[in-house]
Computed example of a mutant assay.
Amino acid sequence: MISRNPLIPCLLLVLICLVVPVKAAETGRLHSVIDGDSLEVVIEGKVVEVRLIGIDAPEWGQEYGLAAKSFVLHFCLGKELKLEYDKDRRDRYRRSLAYVYVGGKMLNEAIVREGLALAFAYKPNTRHQARLFQAQADARDAEQGFWQQGGLELTPSQWRKKNRR
Rank of each mutant, 00 (worst) to 15 (best):
86 D>W: 09
47 V>K: 14
67 A>K: 08
63 E>P: 12
70 S>W: 14
95 R>Q: 11
41 V>R: 02
81 L>H: 06
93 Y>I: 07
161 K>C: 06
43 I>E: 11
19 V>W: 14
80 E>A: 06
108 N>F: 06
123 K>L: 09
82 K>N: 10
32 S>L: 13
47 V>L: 12
50 V>H: 04
3 S>V: 09
22 V>T: 09
115 G>I: 02
137 A>F: 03
41 V>G: 05
4 R>N: 15
163 N>A: 02
127 R>Y: 11
87 K>A: 13
75 F>H: 11
94 R>S: 04
97 L>E: 00
107 L>E: 04
99 Y>H: 14
10 C>I: 15
70 S>G: 01
49 E>N: 12
126 T>F: 07
8 I>W: 14
121 A>F: 09
112 V>H: 04
162 K>C: 02
152 L>M: 11
35 D>E: 01
146 F>A: 03
98 A>W: 11
82 K>C: 00
78 G>E: 04
61 G>P: 08
124 P>R: 07
62 Q>H: 15
74 H>G: 07
7 L>Q: 11
46 K>F: 11
105 K>A: 10
108 N>A: 04
107 L>R: 02
60 W>L: 15
20 V>N: 03
51 R>C: 02
37 D>L: 04
83 L>R: 04
162 K>I: 08
41 V>E: 08
139 A>N: 00
151 G>W: 11
67 A>S: 14
8 I>V: 15
128 H>I: 10
129 Q>A: 01
82 K>I: 12
77 L>Y: 14
34 I>K: 05
67 A>T: 07
79 K>R: 11
16 I>N: 09
162 K>S: 04
57 A>W: 05
56 D>I: 08
71 F>M: 02
58 P>W: 05
5 N>S: 07
47 V>E: 12
86 D>L: 03
86 D>F: 08
123 K>N: 08
48 V>I: 15
117 A>L: 05
99 Y>L: 05
138 D>E: 10
112 V>M: 01
40 E>G: 02
41 V>F: 12
97 L>K: 11
124 P>G: 03
97 L>Y: 05
44 E>Y: 13
76 C>K: 00
156 P>T: 09
7 L>T: 05
55 I>A: 02
97 L>F: 08
66 L>P: 09
91 D>A: 06
14 V>Q: 01
120 F>Q: 08
21 P>N: 10
117 A>I: 02
147 W>A: 00
31 H>Y: 14
123 K>W: 13
61 G>Y: 10
85 Y>L: 06
156 P>I: 08
79 K>T: 08
88 D>W: 13
72 V>E: 06
81 L>K: 02
89 R>K: 11
65 G>Q: 05
110 A>P: 03
85 Y>M: 07
50 V>Q: 01
74 H>N: 11
98 A>Y: 10
6 P>S: 06
140 R>K: 08
118 L>Y: 15
42 V>L: 10
158 Q>T: 03
139 A>C: 01
39 L>H: 06
120 F>R: 14
55 I>V: 09
13 L>Q: 03
136 Q>F: 06
41 V>P: 04
16 I>T: 11
104 G>Q: 12
88 D>F: 12
73 L>R: 15
52 L>T: 06
5 N>R: 09
1 M>T: 12
